[in-house]
């Protein structure tokens, strides 16, 4: 399937969705006022991907900032993978950013997927 990519802007992240490799990567910052506008095509791509996913899927979240409406989009996205085998989440946070680490830990309580935490 076709890859979907977005370049980073002041308020939206760099997104690389690689269907063949099974890697979905979000980096930078995500605080658009209406996050649904930005995440709608991403969620649609994920729905297509899940019809015939790669043997394993890695979701990489490497965000410095995100707002509450983005957090709902990320959770909805992760939610879609709960029944997909061999899916892992790699959650990155800046060394001293305890808030982002805490947030990742809470997401891992809400979502039934294995999370691995990494420091940038």
């Amino acid at each position: 399937m076709k890859n979907l990519t977005f370049e980073a802007t002041f308020e939206t992240p760099q997104v690389v969705l690689d269907g063949n490799a099974g890697v979905l990567e979000f980096s930078g910052r995500s605080h658009p006022e209406d996050s649904l506008i930005f995440y709608k095509p991403i969620l649609n791509w994920v729905s297509d991907y899940l019809k015939s996913p790669a043997p394993s899927t890695r979701i990489v979240i490497r965000l410095e900032y995100f707002n509450t409406s983005t957090s709902k989009m990320i959770l909805s996205l992760l939610n879609k993978f709960e029944n997909t085998e061999n899916t892992v989440v790699d959650w990155f946070h800046f060394g001293e950013d305890e808030d982002m680490l805490e947030c990742g830990k809470e997401f891992s309580e809400l979502i039934n997927l294995p999370f691995t935490f990494h420091t940038i």
């Binding site: 605080h31 006022e33 410095e64 900032y65 707002n67 509450t68 409406s69 800046f94 060394g95 001293e96 950013d97 305890e98 808030d99 982002m100």
Partner: peptide, 22 residues
């Protein structure tokens, strides 16, 4: 500012500004 302090200020600012807008 130390990274965490700046990030907290910026994050709270984002939510406050979006509360104003919304």
């Amino acid at each position: 500012e130390e990274g965490q302090t700046k990030r907290r200020a910026y994050n709270i600012a984002i939510e406050c500004l979006q509360n104003i807008s919304t």
